[in-house]
Amino acid sequence: MQAPSWVRDVFENYLICEFTSIDNGKPVTFPLLFFYNHDPSRFTVTSSILFSRKIEHMKKNPKVSLLFSNPEGSGVEKHTILVQGIAKIQDSDLDHGWERYLPMWRKKEPYIDGFLSAREQFAWFWKRIVVEVEPEKILAWKNGDTSKAPEAITL
């Protein structure tokens, strides 16, 4: 079964998600740039080692969620979608492992090449961990109306 087009629009066009990891039972949510791959269905975020507390959380508890609620800058209508899944951490190649996502990153943030050209200056920002999330459950609120019951989505 294929997800409705409005759900795919969100995954393919929203710039950021609200990503939650769990720190000793406490939810910790930050806005993060994400990348979506539809086959197989995976959500990926990357994190600099500078902001790696969330990675430490996920190594202890891989259960995470991604909420897509902010259409700003995406050119698509507002919908709200929650993805719950299991995070897999890839940190064996901090310098180059994340580079395979650069084409998708560049599409979302065209100015990223300017930061890349200053890679030496921000050396530790560019030491990045890859987090791949395999979705387990997806709930969606069309038009962002969370006063109504969500729709369960299968990818």
Partner: peptide, 16 residues
């Protein structure tokens, strides 16, 4: 965005 930990152990977020 309100987030809590559900009975299944996953974080649950909803915008309000």
């Amino acid at each position: 965005v309100v987030t809590w930990i559900g009975e299944d152990g996953f974080p649950f977020s909803v915008a309000t």
